[in-house]
């Protein structure tokens, strides 16, 4: 057999695969609508998904959401990734951009808040009812790495507990001693530090026995109620809970300025705030 044919066949296959891919890709965005690129903290993924379709229709545009941890998004923005709107789960990342004069019109808004709760695997195998149960021997917990917002807030809460319920000198001290030496006992039970809030929810709800519980945003609880997920959630009392401030901004490299402003204004409007409340944000 002529050895040329396999080589030609290979080239043809690659070219055809490329062409089909290109056509399919272009077909999705056939009408050349303007594209708004939104960098959003992963905890905002569900609430944004709820409004994008209506927003796209109303503004004749395409919204593309890049969802990751706020610190990852911040690094991407500062290294020059195109971004029209940045929504961070910790306003410190936006304030950082503000301080380096990297915001459009030097403006940002703390548009909502989020607190923490406990997520428990379906059926609650370890019978967890409080923060004290998380540090019992043999309980496997998943939290986020302290370099991302939900992990930093969880870390703050662990130390809030050490300073109050676990501190014999505090008027809030829990006399049973269940919270003594809490940070060390907590760390001993952590089986993984994940890089996003979504991954914690994913790991616990995958329900293959990897983890018994985790600490996630209260908005995950609200979303779990909306979608009737199998996982269960438990409250973390306000005395030790950490409330995180979310911020929205338009980076100075914005290309779709008018669209970006419309998008930002939506979240600041009564309608946007109501949607956020429905999804568990704001408290």
């Amino acid at each position: 057999m002529n050895t040329k044919y396999p080589a030609i066949a290979l080239v043809v296959i690659i070219v055809v695969a490329g062409a089909v891919g290109y056509l399919a890709y272009n077909g999705t965005f056939s009408a050349k609508k303007p594209t708004l690129i939104v960098f959003a903290a992963s905890s905002l993924t569900n609430v944004i998904a709820n409004m994008t379709q209506a927003f796209e229709t109303a503004n004749n545009c395409v919204v593309k959401v890049n969802s990751a941890s706020s610190s990852t998004l911040y690094t991407q923005i500062t290294s020059g990734s195109p971004c029209d709107v940045f929504m961070a789960a910790n306003n410190k990342w936006v304030i950082d951009l503000y301080n380096s004069k990297s915001l459009y019109q030097q403006y940002y808004d703390n548009f909502t808040k989020n607190s923490l709760c406990i997520i428990v695997a379906a059926g609650n195998p370890k019978n967890i009812t409080s923060m004290a149960d998380l540090v019992k021997p043999g309980v496997r917990i998943i939290v986020a790495d302290p370099s991302v917002p939900v992990g930093e807030y969880a870390n703050d809460t662990v130390y809030n507990i050490a300073a109050t319920w676990g501190n014999p000198n505090s008027p809030l001290y829990v006399t049973s001693g269940a919270y003594l030496n809490y940070p060390a006992k907590f760390a001993a039970n952590v089986v993984s530090y994940e890089d996003t809030d979504e991954n914690i929810v994913g790991d616990v709800s995958l329900n293959v026995g990897t983890a018994d519980a985790g600490i996630v945003f209260y908005s995950d609880w609200a979303y779990g109620n909306l979608t009737h997920e199998q996982v269960q959630f438990l409250p973390i009392p306000a005395t030790v809970n950490t409330v995180g401030n979310y911020a929205i901004c338009i980076p100075s490299e914005v290309t779709q300025t008018a669209l970006a402003q419309t998008f930002e204004n939506y979240w600041l409007s009564a309608q946007g705030q109501a949607l956020l409340t429905e999804f568990g944000f704001g408290t």
């Binding site: 998943i142 790495d145 370099s147 952590v190 089986v191 993984s192 530090y193 994940e194 890089d195 990897t210």
Partner: peptide, 16 residues
């Protein structure tokens, strides 16, 4: 998973 000293290998540590 990603736990320093237990499962956090070099590539994971680089990422974090």
């Amino acid at each position: 998973g990603n736990l320093p000293g237990i499962t956090q290998t070099m590539p994971l540590a680089i990422y974090v």
